[in-house]
Design a protein around this nucleic acid. Structure first.
Lengths: 232, 232
DNA sequence: ATTTAAATATACTATTGAGTATATTTTTTA
DNA sequence: TAAAAAATATACTCAATAGTATATTTAAAT
């Protein structure tokens, strides 16, 4: 509600509009910050206690505000869940896109993609796991929008593998399901990975890339390549 | 409660004990049947609506009984969830054990294992997915018991890979995480697989085995091997 | 300074659903 | 067939919590 008011006043064409806009911008920044902080705390709680196990008051308490405060930023609990779920997949998609724009062979691109997407998926572990766990609780509209992104993600990876295969860089069998399995590796990563475990993040990402390369029949990462990607 | 009574009367050493036992057995069978039917319907509902989204009454309605009926077979809702979660992992573990007792090379054993475990994991899709989704909602005791089985499962697969590697059949890199990724393939399978999709179960199982073989650097399945396992 | 409006909090409603006390029916035993 | 016990159902309690109507404070505009 208040968000929309803000947007409107921001597009008003009065004189002295500059000063107005600066003010408007600060407000919008504050608004965004508050929204993001709510999402952030909700993410942690959803991850730890599950969606059903998290009350709006618990989120409010973490932020030292009250329930209606939350409701002035989100229509209802479902909307918070949708925001949490969307954050993870959106960022993963962004990172995927930037990795895909790496130049080099398709194999190079795949390495970059797996490493960077893996990295973000670990960083956004709580979002991704919450998404995987709670999709069923989203309302159809949100679910459809997020599924759309998810499909785009899968499709882009499938295309990368296809292109690399056409270029003769990858060696796939007939009726290859490699895109699915690689998507599986990525989705599985945040589920089992624990920052508390023995494996370092770099070890895990190296493992992910290695597994991905094996699945499509490409050559192993060399020491040079490994050092390159680790020390960047 | 009534279950325990039954067990006691079954171990009584009166004369005519045979007749008693037969009766006792029938009763126990009925009891087990009812319990299993509750678990069955709960599994479907948990899968479709989530644990929190499923009411005890909904389960009762499906079976055309009433709420207290359910409560006479399960202490509370959590106990039903525990039973649902345990069913999947228990069966997967059983199948794993039988697959591991296949004779042949380690590669043969791995093929058998992936195929059969994949098969059961598809069949028990709803249980497995519910388990992955709702672990957090189990009480610590149930969670610990089920985690135990889960660990046994992972450990057995890790051992198989280790043994095959020692025997020189598999080609792993240093600090190999292959057991984890293979466990990932298996766990990921029921999440994305849809019986409604284009891929047949056999195609998917073949894909799973192929991916597994690639991950540990073993030779592809031959046509003969494929026909062997498909037509059994 | 005064008015207006925006942000935030207090205190409530209303629903849902887990779990249970009690009644009734059915089955078993004697 | 009468008494006892087991299985099942009816009708409730009680707690949790999503969501809201209303009050209060804070900030902005004139």
């Amino acid at each position: 509600m208040s968000l929309e008011t803000e947007v409107k006043s921001g597009s008003s064409k009065k004189q002295g509009g500059d000063a107005k806009n600066v003010k408007g911008h600060l407000k919008r920044e504050l608004l965004t910050l508050k929204r993001n902080r709510i999402i952030e705390e909700a993410t942690i709680l959803f991850f730890d206690e599950g969606y059903a196990g998290t009350t709006i008051e618990a989120i409010a308490d973490k932020l030292q505000v009250t329930k209606p405060f939350i409701y002035s930023y989100f229509k209802n609990k479902e909307a918070i869940l949708a925001a949490v779920c969307e954050t993870g997949i959106s960022e993963a998609l962004e990172v995927l896109q930037s990795a895909l724009s790496t130049d080099g062979t398709y194999r190079d691109i795949l390495i970059q993609t797996l490493w960077q997407v893996g990295d973000i998926v670990i960083k956004r572990q709580a979002c991704v796991v919450t998404y995987l766990r709670e999709i069923k609780k989203l309302n159809p509209k949100d679910a459809a929008r997020i599924l759309q992104k998810r499909k785009e993600f899968d499709h882009k990876i499938a295309k990368l593998i296809d292109d690399g295969t056409s270029a003769g860089e990858f060696d796939l069998g007939p009726r290859a399901m490699d895109a699915i399995w690689i998507g599986g590796l990525i989705s599985w990563l945040p589920v089992w990975f624990s920052a508390a475990g023995k494996l370092s993040k770099n070890d895990v990402l190296f493992g992910l890339v290695s597994a991905g390369l094996k699945l499509i029949g490409a050559a192993k990462m060399s020491e040079v390549e490994k050092n390159n990607i680790t020390g960047q």
